[in-house]
Design a protein around this nucleic acid. Structure first.
Length: 651
DNA sequence: GCCGTTTTCGGCCCGACTGTTTTCAGTCG
């Protein structure tokens, strides 16, 4: 459901400029786009606001400085109008005439956008003609049959809206990447095994490894004469909760977790993904858990084009089509065609005259570009990099040699030191960093941190184990760190003398509530103060977000990373974690490239609380890939013998 | 509202599906 929470124009709490932060500006611009749609504005004007919001969020420089320099309009997508708006907001603390727009559009209309089949046009029509301002009013109007009499409406639309309202209540929100991939892999395998399907592959945000997945897209290559047979077979796959629609080229479904039973017993799931998922995520699925899925059926010779198209992202595709147009070509899900001589041929008919492509590499070659890995297709600079042959060589899961943030029974983990070490060795790792919680941490009134007097005991155990491996000639070691709480005032838990004994200190915020009650500027200052402590090594789950659960606390992460970069250039090691738990995936991948540009090393940490949790590193690697990171950018790609030294040097 | 070797106006990515119509508008991805 589109949450209505937060749909008010922000008021500044500050007494001097800048009155608003970059994140506040970005969110207002995005909301204005939506509000304008509901107000019936010119769709291109709507897109201008959406584009401005997007381009600002990938703009890495300090926005306040840009405003002061007067160079706002040099940012692509920001012209005179929006630049004036941003200038006014930051300098004066006012939003021009946007107040009236926020006032004008009833909040219930925003919620209605979440109803499948309802868009801004119909919502506006209902509002203008019938005075409908909320989902509740919409439901009763539909039940009374009041909607069917409107122009271009009818009984069927009315029913669809009622179903849509129910659906919205039942199947709300997106799925975490791990859950989405479980469904996606299972569904892909089932479709691949249908006779008549020549190839089938998962596309969409799952293939791009987004941290959360709205619905699954699967492309299947099927000859024309097999379409009917294959469609019937797909519709009879067990695990389908509902069929939403089925045409010649597209099938829309809702899947439920019963799809897994046979898929798992046949071990048909991709081994790499299954290993990463460890089966844990599946066991946790509720029986009423569902996910939307679309299957596209296309002739084999256009499969690559359709894969590229439905892998997205939408923004990447727009840029690709623009690139094609620049070369006098048209690109769509069926092929790439010269614009002249295309005539009236559309869709598949036109594909006969298109440029052939056996795989995606050839599509990019036709456009004189290097193939872009799916994870990078977000229009975050990959188009330019692919055109100039400057794409990074992305990190691979096998390049990770250990991890630095994991727990044992000494705090809230469920496995002992030696059990965790064995599991790490089984993964082929050369080291395991243990970072149990510090003393202060208690969750639900129960203290789970390691008290001061037990820190030394843990250190002794680790030393004994390391000595044993060393005499045996085993290339494995445990690094004795701590996940040390960053207190609300920016101080670190434990006395200095204890912190200095650890090989590394992962500083993490756990008392999220007090950080959420402060503003971005204050939080940023306090967090930077904590990072500057000489014993501080790694920033753990920087914003505290839980995917699908809660937003992180307000923070200017660019400013934090800039400061960490300065400290690194002074020779002090300050690394930033990508917490690899699929619940967190924090640092956000969108910030990885910036961290790299500032010279901040990244550590991919599973934050494992049990043996299988170590495998979550796989998800962290996916995020690092989305963030353009290479092997040398990631600290825990260093071999065991080197990483100890690196941490000593960095103090 | 933004943008511009076609720069101050007239474009702005493209197609399938659905339900409403009898040629098309709205929605979705």
């Amino acid at each position: 459901m589109v949450s209505v929470h937060g749909w008010v124009i922000p008021r500044s709490r500050r007494s001097e400029p800048p009155f608003f932060t970059k994140n506040q500006i970005i969110s207002v611009l995005e909301q204005v786009g939506t509000l304008l749609q509901l107000d019936g504005a010119n769709p291109f004007r709507v897109r201008a606001y959406e584009n401005a919001s997007r381009s600002l969020s990938s703009h890495e420089d300090n926005l306040w400085e840009t405003v002061q320099e007067g160079t706002l309009i040099e940012i692509k997508g920001i012209g005179k109008g929006i630049a004036g708006l941003i200038d006014e907001a930051m300098n004066e603390g006012t939003w021009g005439d946007l107040d009236s727009l926020y006032q004008k559009v009833p909040k219930g209309l925003i919620e209605m956008l979440g109803v499948p089949g309802l868009g801004p046009k119909r919502i506006k029509q209902f509002h203008d003609e019938l005075g409908i301002e909320s989902i509740a009013e919409l439901r009763s109007a539909a039940e009374e049959g009041a909607l069917a009499n409107l122009p271009r409406m009818g009984k069927k639309m009315e029913e669809r809206i009622l179903e849509g309202i129910d659906l919205l209540a039942r199947f709300t929100g997106r799925r975490r990447l791990d859950i989405g991939l479980l469904y996606g892999e299972a569904f892909e395998r089932r479709i691949s095994s249908i006779s008549g399907v020549q190839r089938a592959q998962l596309a969409g945000s799952a293939r791009r490894r987004k941290e959360s997945i709205g619905d699954l897209d699967i492309v299947a290559a099927v000859e024309n004469e097999d379409i009917e047979k294959v469609t019937d077979a797909i519709l009879s796959i067990p695990g389908i909760a509902e069929i939403k629609g089925a045409g010649d080229s597209k099938i829309s479904l809702i899947l439920e977790s019963t799809i897994f039973e046979e898929a798992f017993s046949n071990s048909t799931i991709d081994e790499g993904v299954l290993a990463a998922l460890g089966g844990e995520a599946w066991e946790e699925l509720e029986s009423n858990s569902t996910i939307d899925a679309q299957v596209r059926l296309v002739p084999p010779h256009v499969f690559a084009y359709t894969m590229a198209y439905f892998t997205g992202s939408k923004e990447h595709n727009v840029r690709m089509r623009q690139r094609a147009l620049d070369m006098g070509l048209r690109l769509n899900e069926f092929g790439l065609f010269p614009l002249d001589g295309l005539g009236d041929a559309k869709g598949l008919e036109a594909a006969a005259n298109g440029m052939p492509a056996m795989d995606e590499t050839e599509i990019y070659e036709h456009l004189q570009m290097k193939w872009v890995p799916p994870e990078m297709r977000e229009d975050m600079g990959e188009i330019e990099a692919a055109l100039s042959d400057n794409l990074p060589s992305l990190i691979e899961p096998y390049q990770v040699k250990g991890a630095l943030h994991n727990h044992t029974t000494a705090s809230d983990g469920s496995a002992s030191l030696s059990e965790m070490a064995e599991a790490a060795m089984a993964l082929g790792w050369e080291y395991l960093g243990i970072a149990d919680h510090s003393e202060v941490l208690n969750i639900g009134g129960r203290s789970i941190g390691v008290p001061q007097h037990l820190v030394k005991k843990q250190g002794n155990e680790i030393r004994e184990m390391n000595d044993k491996w060393s005499t045996e000639g085993t290339d494995f070691r445990i690094l004795h760190g701590s996940e040390c709480d960053i207190l609300a005032d920016g101080k670190l838990d434990y006395p200095d003398s204890i912190r200095r004994e650890f090989s590394h200190v992962v500083g993490s915020v756990h008392a999220i509530r007090s950080w959420r009650n402060r503003d971005e500027i204050e939080n940023t200052e306090i967090l930077i103060k904590a990072i500057e402590d000489p014993t501080f090594t790694i920033l753990g789950h920087p914003t505290g977000r839980i995917i699908g659960g809660r937003e992180g606390f307000p923070l200017d992460m660019h400013a934090v990373l800039r400061r960490m970069g300065e400290l690194n250039s002074d020779g002090v090691l300050k690394a930033c974690e990508i917490n690899a738990s699929p619940y967190r995936l924090d640092l956000d991948w969108r910030l990885c490239k910036f961290a790299k540009s500032q010279g901040v090393p990244i550590v991919i940490n599973p934050d494992a609380h049990f043996k299988k949790g170590l495998k979550d590193v796989w998800f962290g690697v996916q995020m690092a890939r989305k963030g353009w990171l290479e092997e040398q950018d990631v600290l825990n790609c260093l071999p065991g013998s080197v990483i100890e030294e690196r941490m000593m040097e960095g103090k």
